[in-house]
């Protein structure tokens, strides 16, 4: 009984973790290239969720088809915020960029509140589901999972097989050297910020396929916190690391519930959260480059 439950939870955890991982790649990319922690991360996920919701409700567009729209919107927002704020803060203290990204998040939340009210909304796609006996998986979740892997893969190919991607990697390795080699470092910064935000907005769309309800302007906060843990698991500066970090996180969060539930007097769900933050600290202490990196 308990093993059946545990295996069901773990499978659900992997799928959820894949989507979480995708939702963290943008954060890691931006940190990796610009060394900026995007504290307003969750707000961009929220924007993506609204993109999916509005397109579905007003035009009847299926959520997967909202991805390109989200990508373009996200990249445009990224460019906008890079040139108006982030660019000027790159050389400043951490404090400045932390506060700026936080404020950007607040702006997005408040604008969305004015546009869509603070009502929690959702959409109903109505796909079928797959019954595995020990657990049930709706197809929309599987599509979200597949989509996350696909996006991760595309990002990998772009980084390793295209000139633009390789240029960006060279900036991560050594921005001064890259500048000497004739790469426009400022443009690379702008591009990575914009891609990072684009990915995050896309992940918002994919997340609604996992959870199509409860969409509201302030939904991003808990995703920001999760993304921090996941990014650290994956080494903070590595987008693929983040993806695997997400998988590990999903497994731990769902797996540890079943274990904590055996201890009387505890609230297992809150304890899984506690556990994930303890893990964050332990990893930062013993292996700040992340669980999965060998270097």
């Amino acid at each position: 009984m308990i093993f059946e439950q545990l295996s069901g939870n773990l499978l659900q955890g992997v799928i959820l973790g894949g989507v979480y991982g995708m939702a963290t790649m943008g954060l890691s990319l931006i940190f990796g290239v610009l060394k900026v922690v995007n504290v307003g991360h969750g707000a961009f996920i929220m924007v993506g969720a609204y993109v999916a919701l509005i397109l579905f409700q007003t035009l009847g567009i299926a959520p997967p088809l909202a991805v390109p729209v989200a990508l373009i919107l996200g990249m445009a927002l990224g460019m906008l915020f890079y040139y108006t704020a982030i660019k000027k803060l790159l050389k400043g203290p951490e404090l400045a960029s932390l506060l700026a990204t936080f404020s950007i998040g607040v702006i997005l939340e408040e604008v969305c509140k004015q546009l869509f009210t603070s009502e929690a909304r959702g959409y109903h796609w109505g796909l079928d589901k797959l019954d595995l006996g020990f657990t049930v998986l709706p197809y929309s979740k599987l599509i979200a999972f597949g989509g996350s892997i696909l996006v991760g893969l595309l990002l990998y190919l772009w980084f390793h097989k295209t000139r633009a991607g390789m240029a960006m990697r060279s900036v991560v390795e050594d921005d001064e050297g890259a500048g000497v080699c004739g790469i426009n470092v400022d443009w690379e910064y702008a591009l990575s910020f914009s891609i990072g935000i684009g990915l995050t907005v896309v992940s918002g769309v994919l997340l609604t396929m996992f959870i199509p309800v409860g969409i509201n302007p302030y939904m991003g906060g808990s995703y920001t916190l999760k993304a921090f843990v996941i990014a650290v698991l994956g080494g903070l500066a590595s987008p693929y690391g983040a993806f695997f970090g997400g998988l590990v996180f999903g497994l731990i969060e769902n797996g540890s519930y079943t274990l904590f539930a055996q201890i009387p007097g505890l609230e297992p769900f809150a304890m899984t959260r506690f556990f994930s933050f303890v893990m964050l600290l332990v990893i930062l202490l013993i292996r700040p480059t992340g669980l999965l990196r060998t270097k």
Binding site: Q12, Y223, E253, F269
Partner: peptide, 19 residues
């Protein structure tokens, strides 16, 4: 059983409940 505020996935709690 409770779940914390700001929860984004209830699957583990609900599989427990289902049992």
């Amino acid at each position: 059983r409770t779940y914390p505020k700001g929860v984004t996935d209830l699957t583990p709690l609900l599989s427990d409940l289902k049992a």
